[in-house]
Amino acid sequence: MLELLQGLGHWTLSGLRRLGRANIFMLYVLGGIPLCVRRFRLVITQLFAVGVLSILIIFVSGLFVGMVLGLQGYNTLVDFGAEESLGVLVALSLVRELGPVVSALLFAGRAGSALTAEIGLMKATEQLSAMEMMAVDPLHRVIAPRLLAGIIAMPLLAAIFSAVGVFGGYLVGVGMLGVDDGAFWSQMQSSVEFREDILNGVIKSLVFGVTVTWIAVFEGYDTLPTSEGIGRATTRTVVNSSLAVLAFDFILTALMFNK
């Protein structure tokens, strides 16, 4: 019984300690933002790694999710004779929820894990240490550009996901199932609010971008410098950032769409 309590206590304390380390880490990293602005090349190189290389998976997933939404939505709506509202259903689900959330989950798996592994490996091979000895702060030179690139890339990827998804829903709904073309778009346009839906979706994806990238770079930097440690850190990145995204999604949805 006491051991159980001790275990719980140990778990809580080490969790809090990690959280504290992550916050201090973030504070130092933010000190590197001026450097990134001055030498934007560093960020561009990272944008390539986290953004451009994630496009394919985001594009394909968005298309399929949109197509599935089109099929499922049609089958449900047709029972109420409301298949004209398919556009609304597809667009709202994507813009409000699936776009930001699914692309953040994919981003965590694709770019987040790669970031963790890369930084962990740089630590294990003493590259970060060597930078420090060359009087270069790795938090500013290595971590900050990656964080910034992640934050910039995430909303763009989510927007691509949603746009492609709407197109996928259109392909299935209008192309395959014969929903009226005009009704699809006009109903969508009359129901989707720019500020309420699209802007909130963008804000969501920004928050997710910060969350996922922060977790990824912190796990990489905080890893044990061994191959096993890196493996564990990579897994932790994907698991923790996915959970964080879903939790934040609930909180944000409650705040944003609570009328």
């Binding site: 740089m122 240490s129 060597a130 420090e132 000895m133 009087a135 702060d137």
Partner: peptide, 20 residues
């Protein structure tokens, strides 16, 4: 101050620690 000092130090790491 440490950063300033390190600019005047060179260190060769065991693995080389080249930026990959």
């Amino acid at each position: 101050e440490l950063m300033q000092l390190r600019k005047r130090m060179g260190m060769l790491f065991q693995s080389g620690a080249l930026l990959t």
